[in-house]
Computed example of a mutant assay.
Amino acid sequence: MAKRRLGIPLAPPGPQFDFFALMQEFVLKRGDPSLEAMRKMTGCYSRQALHKALRGPDLPSRRLVDVLVNALFEKRSDGDTDVDEEERKQAVRRALDAWEEAVGEKTARERGGLPRAVASTEPEATTRRLPSSTPGEAAIRLTDEFRRTYELAGRPPLKQIAFWLEERGHPVGMSSISEWLNGRRIPREAETAIALVEAMRDRSFHYGESPLDSASRQVVTQLWMEAMREKQSRRHDS
């Protein structure tokens, strides 16, 4: 029987999605064990509970997160040199911090408040500032595509993404990439938006993501053009 795939997290973009993506990242890093194997590792949680903890949509308990990540990063034999005690502690700390962020955002949503904004840096000359008002539908959809491919690529460091973009002839700074992923700005050129999606999709084969084809490039281009029109329209209306 083929191993059951976890699938994309069933959570809205933001801290909740980031939490589930991080948990799946840890599973992959530790050899992608099956749910049955993780059930045996933890010794106290069912496969269904573990699957929900890794995909959602409901957030698991803090204790489940603690137990699961500790089990994943525990030495499995005397010859297991892939992980040390400090790495295990760091993984647990990252998971619990992400869980707390997700719980905070979920609570804010349920109370009708706004989730905490992601910190960002000042823009560079290679980006255009979105208006202070709420971004238009196309800009939001374009950002969603950036975030989706970013998560599927395993949430690579901004430095790594900058390197991939430079390889494709689009040298940009990490602060610009952060702004694009946070939805605060959009790339100045459509080709840069395409290169960003293309670079991350090329690293997403484990999740069943295909390379960017001509149809997908056209979709990204169309979203970018519509986002720019929205911005120009708001400028004229102001």
Rank of each mutant, 00 (worst) to 15 (best):
residue 158 L to G: 05
residue 47 R to Y: 05
residue 99 W to D: 01
residue 130 L to P: 03
residue 149 T to Q: 15
residue 136 G to D: 03
residue 94 R to S: 02
residue 29 K to L: 03
residue 74 E to P: 00
residue 91 A to I: 01
residue 79 G to M: 11
residue 85 E to C: 00
residue 137 E to T: 14
residue 152 L to H: 14
residue 62 R to C: 06
residue 116 R to P: 02
residue 43 G to V: 09
residue 63 R to F: 14
residue 72 L to E: 06
residue 126 T to N: 15
residue 98 A to M: 02
residue 58 D to L: 13
residue 128 R to F: 06
residue 91 A to S: 02
residue 149 T to K: 15
residue 136 G to I: 06
residue 57 P to Q: 12
residue 51 H to C: 13
residue 101 E to L: 08
residue 47 R to W: 08
residue 117 A to L: 07
residue 49 A to T: 10
residue 133 S to W: 09
residue 43 G to I: 09
residue 140 I to D: 04
residue 87 E to C: 00
residue 50 L to D: 09
residue 163 F to Q: 09
residue 138 A to I: 12
residue 111 R to E: 11
residue 43 G to R: 05
residue 32 D to C: 01
residue 98 A to Y: 03
residue 46 S to C: 11
residue 50 L to I: 15
residue 83 V to P: 01
residue 157 P to C: 08
residue 32 D to R: 09
residue 49 A to H: 10
residue 133 S to G: 10
residue 29 K to P: 00
residue 91 A to D: 00
residue 54 L to Q: 01
residue 146 F to Q: 07
residue 73 F to C: 01
residue 149 T to W: 15
residue 29 K to N: 02
residue 105 E to Q: 12
residue 100 E to M: 05
residue 106 K to T: 14
residue 116 R to W: 07
residue 98 A to N: 04
residue 110 E to C: 07
residue 48 Q to I: 11
residue 147 R to M: 12
residue 159 K to Y: 02
residue 29 K to Q: 05
residue 82 D to S: 14
residue 62 R to P: 01
residue 138 A to Y: 09
residue 150 Y to I: 14
residue 64 L to V: 09
residue 148 R to S: 13
residue 143 T to M: 11
residue 144 D to L: 15
residue 147 R to Q: 15
residue 52 K to A: 14
residue 153 A to N: 15
residue 154 G to D: 07
residue 97 D to V: 11
residue 74 E to I: 03
residue 132 S to K: 05
residue 37 A to G: 05
residue 62 R to Y: 13
residue 52 K to C: 12
residue 104 G to P: 04
residue 57 P to C: 10
residue 73 F to M: 00
residue 53 A to G: 12
residue 162 A to Q: 04
residue 124 E to F: 08
residue 144 D to K: 15
residue 88 R to T: 00
residue 99 W to S: 04
residue 146 F to C: 13
residue 57 P to G: 11
residue 57 P to N: 08
residue 105 E to C: 08
residue 143 T to I: 05
residue 76 R to C: 01
residue 110 E to N: 07
residue 86 E to N: 00
residue 142 L to E: 06
residue 75 K to W: 01
residue 42 T to C: 10
residue 124 E to Y: 02
residue 75 K to F: 01
residue 145 E to N: 10
residue 58 D to M: 14
residue 52 K to E: 15
residue 99 W to C: 04
residue 51 H to S: 15
residue 33 P to S: 06
residue 145 E to F: 11
residue 158 L to E: 03
residue 153 A to C: 09
residue 77 S to T: 10
residue 34 S to C: 03
residue 161 I to H: 05
residue 44 C to K: 15
residue 49 A to M: 10
residue 95 A to V: 06
residue 126 T to V: 12
residue 62 R to E: 15
residue 93 R to L: 01
residue 139 A to G: 06
residue 123 P to M: 12
residue 50 L to K: 04
residue 120 S to M: 14
residue 116 R to K: 11
residue 99 W to G: 04
residue 151 E to S: 15
